[in-house]
Design a protein around this nucleic acid. Structure first.
Lengths: 336, 336
DNA sequence: ATGAAAGCGCTAACAG
DNA sequence: CTGTTAGCGCTTTCAT
């Protein structure tokens, strides 16, 4: 923070007018004479006066900044969400304070507190994988802090939410595999404490049932990272000869699985069809190119900000909480 | 910003002590009796008092937040830098305000102003591709704002910098190709107003000269995005029969080139060897896996924050500006 | 049309 | 050991 920044007080002194006159002149208050306005504004312009946002926020009881709690910045999906958020937020005059939970509930709680301490006007959050309790959020909500959850939301909490219809995503992916003729489809799932994990899985299960295929617990593996694919490598390879389809909860895991299978002589999609989830840039780099469920990160980011702004601009109006649902689509490439 | 947040004044009133007593008790000032301390702190704890960071910043003339101007969040390199920055900054009690320039000088200038307006204690920046003038930064620097440039730095500005030795990166990549027996190597380059663009290119040129290979301007193409590869598609394919090596300024462009070449019957690396720059996750997804220059984003992020903190903690001490240089290494895979 | 003063939440010098 | 006061930079009510 630069201490040598020009203040309204400095201007007042130099111009021999009162502080309030300067303040009013700067904001084009009708009471001020054109003459004084010009005087003040020229001076301000000349010496590059810039209002102190901190002081403004304190005074206005509104910081014009919004907070973001995100599990991990480096995932393409999340970074595209950030991009969408940043874009709209800045356009609307808000700035963005970003915190990373690193998939850790404790960090998430700290993040939340940090943002509250900074008196952000509202908070956007996508839950960490390890988050099991939600008091921190319900407290914030009760204290009046506007909260919008996106992607990884919390069912038990009443709040604004932006999601993709993950059940539908799981369903269309699995149905596509079934229509392709797959009979033995496994699912690599996200942790089941996450709604997205449950929903995608439910979509998978229901599609199977609808097709008269038995849902087998031993064909659903908790596996949603590249690293886990390595850990479960042998298990997956044991399963491989008996299966003809895999629905994977995200792209990077799907790609890791394809690589492992290919290294062991399985042909994709001839032997086994694989479908991912996300449609990041990797999806069209892997050979065969990945068939995957499209998730619109950038748009979800923007939508989250929209919902938040709506609430900020109607603080009194007790709008009912909204859930904006994006319909997932299947991007068909080569892997299935 | 929640207006119903408990303040020090509220506590004072409830407890019938003065505001300053509360303030001191909270910060364990030696003058305050243990009794009063307990009283105040219990109350604060019980009603979940949280200091208003805005007021604190105003008072201290220090916001404990740092700003970041980044060309595009969605690039893996940059998002890993952010991750490193966020990590260390939060650990040191700073929070991060992120602005995206979108490779646009005008946006970059706005971003800078926004951050100054928010009275951040310091700013980390990586230049946008289109930035051609630097007055905005030199002004900030002159006004005393600590600035650290990383990766895309500015030669003309005296400031702290964190870079990889891009000349060296270009050199080792090209030398490796030469040693592999390549004689006709083209370079897909970044814009030459960027130091990284010039340096990588210079490394390429010098490696060629050192090997007695003529440097030909028609073998250096400005091409550093997937999109540009499509635009230059025909040009590249015309060149292809005559060349045996390509040094590309970043991974995603390298991958796009490989895809175009493969689609047109060229074998990588048998017909043409390709080397990228960055070593993001994509590098090991493409077939053949990409040989590429390793760039340590996360570490560069941390180092940038370190340099900044060093300066913040020694505001008086006129430390000489430092440039931290990371040595690039070559990750050899299959594409070359 | 302009100024004085209070206050946003907090700290710290000064006083007692 | 505790309280009073001024001030960080700004806005706004109330006087004039």
């Amino acid at each position: 923070m630069k201490s040598t920044q020009l203040t309204i007080k400095d201007i007042a002194k130099s111009l021999n007018v009162s502080i309030s006159t300067v303040s009013r002149a700067l904001k084009d208050h009708p009471d001020i004479s054109q003459e004084t306005k010009d005087l003040v504004r020229n001076y301000a312009e000349k010496f590059n006066y810039r209002p102190n946002v901190l002081a403004l926020s304190l005074r206005r009881q509104r910081s014009y900044s919004i907070g973001l709690i995100i599990p991990a910045i480096v995932h393409h999906f999340f970074s595209s969400v950030i991009s969408g958020i940043e874009e709209l937020a800045h356009k609307e005059g808000y700035n963005l304070i970003i915190c990373q939970s690193n998939e850790n509930q404790y960090r998430e709680m700290i993040n939340l507190q940090t943002l509250i301490d900074h008196r952000v006007d509202g908070i956007l959050v996508s839950l960490s994988k390890t988050t099991q309790t939600f008091e921190h959020f319900s407290e914030a909500l009760n204290s009046g802090m506007p909260l919008v959850f996106f992607d990884r939301v919390c069912e038990q909490l009443e709040a604004d939410k932006v999601i993709t219809d993950d059940y539908e995503g799981g369903r269309i992916a699995t149905e596509y595999l079934i229509n392709k003729g797959c009979k033995n489809i496994i699912h690599l799932a996200a942790p089941q404490n996450l709604v997205i994990g449950r929903e995608r899985r439910n979509g998978y299960c229901d599609a199977l049932r609808k097709a008269g295929i038995e849902v087998r617990e031993d064909r659903i593996l908790k596996c949603d990272t590249r690293e886990e694919v390595q850990t479960l490598r042998n298990h997956i390879l044991n399963l491989a000869p008996d299966i003809d389809g895999i629905f994977v909860v995200n792209d990077s895991t799907a790609i890791a699985v394809i690589q492992v299978l290919q290294q062991n002589g399985f042909r994709i999609p001839e032997d086994i069809s694989v479908i991912g989830y996300g449609d990041g840039p990797n999806a069209s780099i892997i050979k065969p190119e990945l068939t995957t469920v499209v998730q619109k990160g950038y748009e979800m980011g923007r939508e989250s900000v929209k919902l938040l702004l709506q609430r900020l601009n109607n603080p009194a109006a007790d709008i009912n909480y909204q859930t904006k649902v994006f319909k997932p689509t299947l991007k068909i490439r080569q892997s299935a």
